[in-house]
Nucleic acid binder design. Structure first.
Length: 472
RNA sequence: GGUCCCAUCGUCUAGCGGCCCAGGAUAUCGGCCUCUCACGCCGAAGACACGGGUUCGAACCCCGUUGGGACUACCA
């Protein structure tokens, strides 16, 4: 069997967005699954809108998702000779001709046709003029007037088009640049692409492209059109639906494996399985299991998957990805081991690295603030005695660890005839400033005796000040 | 307007004529666990867009309707 070659051809006019990332992922997975090659090609023939910054942003996104390419990035603007060469082949075989119609003129004729209820297609005005190249002239592809073109789509099945629906499309613009439909074909032919896996929005371009393949006498690749991804109102995904670019998800504290897993399951499925490791994805991916209907992208599943991967990772492996979020919050530096320890207690409680970094404040900051509501409810006079005894016993405790801590608390609670929660909550507020946190004993051990005693004393002081006669 | 595509719980989906009065996941709600919050576990509610066919039998096949989407550029 001939080796599989797939490609991802973004146009550098923006960031790598969710839809593009999924297309890239599918191409990458398909190539990896079949032991083939994956090519990255930058389609920058729209010189007006293409930017180098976008190229960088797209590469950055692909790299973050670890969608490594085997060839490229190729740039279409560096392959212009090739398009001219293939255009000449078309001219020589009578399938290409120069056209002098001005865009303005065409516009007028198009809207006139629309207004009269006719098809707004190019009428072939310059077909027989026998024009040569010249300024303000474009090269058009001579499309057949009759017959049909069949697209055998791996995902959607066979689709037949009447050639009469297709008009003579421009293949070389007046600035000498090739148009999309022509450049793709030339590139895919010359790069040996065997499988064109792309978004649904290209289905209707495909018959035109097939016609060009045929006119060039080239072998057709396999086509697979994956359904679009929409926003929650079923309209195309756009900024108003929230984050659309892949790197925004990194900033929101998502792990690349979570996004990858999520994207893979948008449109593709493997029975009832939801969680896929990278190798599993490569192993199990196939175009046969790609669905036909468009899907809506929401963050619900992504959040769940992200929580799953955060939970699953070794704490020490989370340190590096978490650090940017910690320094972003201005926390003082701590050792990696300490951070890893904090992560361990927060893993099951965090959906994103942002959440985790926020929750980590009491571990990192030197001073903590008491949440007013929490302090009012739990830092009350009736537990001052217990707190005092706790401070004493904790200061005496050696070794200072979870195992030794728990009995201390339980004994005090038992002596007072109350449940553990009765003293646990005030202590929690004193240590973390809030009523929600990881397990008390693991917090205490990690924080260390000195910090714990300091915060407990501060808690006690808060109670005393609150209840002293001269305060209200 | 024309051409093309799509249609199962709110969402992602399984289903490829009988295993389905439709399964999983997520989200929601309830319970359990418990030092709080989570996690985890258990449970509840929740869908075959509609109308016609075909067939002994249809979520699955056909036609139509409706609703979405794509394309219709010297954008890609």
């Amino acid at each position: 069997m001939e080796p599989v070659i797939t490609r991802f051809p973004p146009s550098p006019t923006g960031r790598l967005h969710i839809g593009g990332a999924r297309t890239a992922l599918f191409n990458w997975l398909f190539a990896r699954n079949r032991g083939g090659r994956f090519i990255l090609r930058i389609e920058d023939t729209d010189v007006e809108r293409s930017t180098e910054e976008s190229v960088k942003a797209i590469l950055e996104g692909l790299e973050w998702l670890e969608l490594t390419w085997d060839e490229g990035p190729y740039f279409q603007t560096q392959r212009l000779d090739l398009y001219v060469e293939y255009a000449n082949k078309l001219i020589d075989s009578g399938r290409g001709y120069w056209c002098e119609c001005s865009p303005e003129d065409l516009d007028i004729r198009r809207s006139a046709a629309m207004a009269e209820g006719r098809k707004p297609k190019y009428e072939g005005t310059c077909r027989l003029k026998g024009l040569g190249p010249g300024s303000n002239r474009v090269l058009r592809f001579r499309s057949p007037d009759a017959g049909t073109t069949l697209l055998r789509d791996i995902i959607k099945g066979p689709i037949e088009y009447d050639n009469s629906e297709l008009d003579d499309l421009v293949i070389l613009k007046s600035d000498g640049m090739p148009t999309y439909n022509f450049a793709v074909v030339v590139d895919d032919i010359t790069m040996g692409v065997t499988h064109v896996i792309r978004g649904d929005d290209h289905v209707n371009n495909t018959p035109r492209q097939i016609l060009i393949y045929e006119a060039l006498g080239a072998k057709l690749p396999e086509f697979g059109h994956v359904p679009m991804i929409h926003g929650d109102d079923r309209s195309p995904l756009s900024k108003r639906h929230g984050a659309t670019s892949v790197m925004e998800y990194k900033k929101m504290g998502f792990l690349p494996e979570a996004l990858t897993n999520c994207l893979a399951r948008l449109g593709w499925s493997y029975g009832d399985q939801e969680i896929f490791s990278r190798t599993e994805l490569i192993e199990k991916f196939s175009l046969e299991n790609v669905g036909k209907s468009p899907s809506i992208f929401t963050m619900e599943k992504l959040l769940w998957l992200n929580a799953h991967y955060i939970k699953e990772k070794r704490p020490e492996d989370l340190v590096a990805p978490l650090k940017p979020f910690l320094s972003q919050r201005g926390y003082p530096d701590k050792s990696d081991a300490y951070i890893a320890g904090a992560i361990r207690t927060l893993q099951a409680r965090s959906h994103t690295l942002v959440e985790m970094a926020d929750a980590m404040r009491f571990y990192m900051a030197d001073e903590i603030e008491f949440d007013p509501d929490a302090a009012r409810e739990f830092l009350t006079a009736d537990i001052a005695g217990a707190l005092g005894r706790l401070i004493f016993e904790v200061s005496e405790l050696e070794p200072f660890d979870e195992k030794g801590l728990e009995p201390v608390f339980r004994n005090i609670a038992a002596d007072l005839g109350v449940k553990l929660g009765k003293i646990a909550q005030p202590v929690r507020v004193a240590l973390t400033g809030t009523t929600k946190s990881p397990g008390l004993f693991e917090i205490i051990e990690l924080l260390g005796k000195q910090t714990v005693l300091k915060r407990l004393q501060k808690g006690l002081k808060h109670i005393e000040e609150r209840h002293s006669p001269d305060s209200v």
